[in-house]
Design a protein around this nucleic acid. Sequence first.
DNA 1: GATCTCATGTAAAACGTTACATGATTTG
DNA 2: CAAATCATGTAACGTTTTACATGAGATC
Lengths: 188, 188
Amino acid sequence: MKTYNDTTYAILGILTTDCKTGYEIKQLIDRSLNHFWKISYGQIYPALKLIVDEGLAEVNNVENEGRPDKKEYHLTPKGFDVLKQWLDSPIEQLPNEKNEILLKLFFGQYQSHERTISILQSYLEKLEARYLTYQGIEESILVYKHKKQQDDAAYWLFTLDYGKRVTHAAIEWCRETIKKCEEERNDV
Amino acid sequence: MKTYNDTTYAILGILTTDCKTGYEIKQLIDRSLNHFWKISYGQIYPALKLIVDEGLAEVNNVENEGRPDKKEYHLTPKGFDVLKQWLDSPIEQLPNEKNEILLKLFFGQYQSHERTISILQSYLEKLEARYLTYQGIEESILVYKHKKQQDDAAYWLFTLDYGKRVTHAAIEWCRETIKKCEEERNDV
DNA sequence: GATCTCATGTAAAACGTTACATGATTTG
DNA sequence: CAAATCATGTAACGTTTTACATGAGATC
């Protein structure tokens, strides 16, 4: 069977939810999958075109009073099969992070202690802000879970839990590394 | 001042260490920066060419008995300046992970519990293997630190500590999520 | 004798980001 | 009245992966 890239599978997956348009897909990813997936319109619209060309979804135009028309995409049985088949396939590789902060820290000896500390501090702030948004997302998922009795909420909470734990570990590391750098600075 | 991409800065940084050839750069990244940076030869060799063209490093050919010749790259003062200037510049964005496992888990309701658990289990195994390699790297950095009295080892240990903490958090999450899925399976 | 390590490189394809274009309505 | 939100899309550019090419010595 034909294979597609992960961007395409991500969109197929989202089309199983209430999100049916390119715009809504972007919003869902930015708001709920943000900690493990990113996407741009430059990926979404061409991918939706491909999905329709391949018969994995069907489009229909929906008039939207006082708003631009929108195109709703609905999975076909074939599209649902392709999604399930991807879900069933094994995963070979660990995700590969690219972390600019760690890259700079790796060469930290060529930086002043002040600069190293300030980079870590701004990283810490961003991590803390991210942790707070996760808590916000968690609450909105819990609300959604109570409203609609759907199974998907459980899985969304699993992925969110991952984000929270990993972010928490990064925050702890950040705080302690800043402390170590400050001690170093005072020693020298 | 002209800017380059992170791949280029990563290579400039590595040229401050004992690694002076394309091959050695690849090895160092694979072995020591592996948890936060990846690179391929298709990036390294063109980047080294650019680095020389821009006057950031100089090449010289080194004969290597019983082995192919190698090209050693040495930073110029200008190259070192460019590196330091990049190190001093602020970081705007948090790194964006792309995690295929979490993406699949997000759509876990369309998978059997068995399959979800088996994906999590293989993820767990990979995370545990990674944690072990981190411990191996840690020991080799400690050895290096004792041999040469260099400051860089401290920063290498910082980045490694990050990798260990984050991986540990992911392992814990994995174990508990597997437990939850197993309970679900038994309930249904 | 096969595979691994050392060593450098290119070309094509795949993938992703950014900037641009359009335009109406709602909110501050 | 400016800015944000809703809504779709393209083109250019930048980045990364993958496959290929070459070849000698060392290890199993």
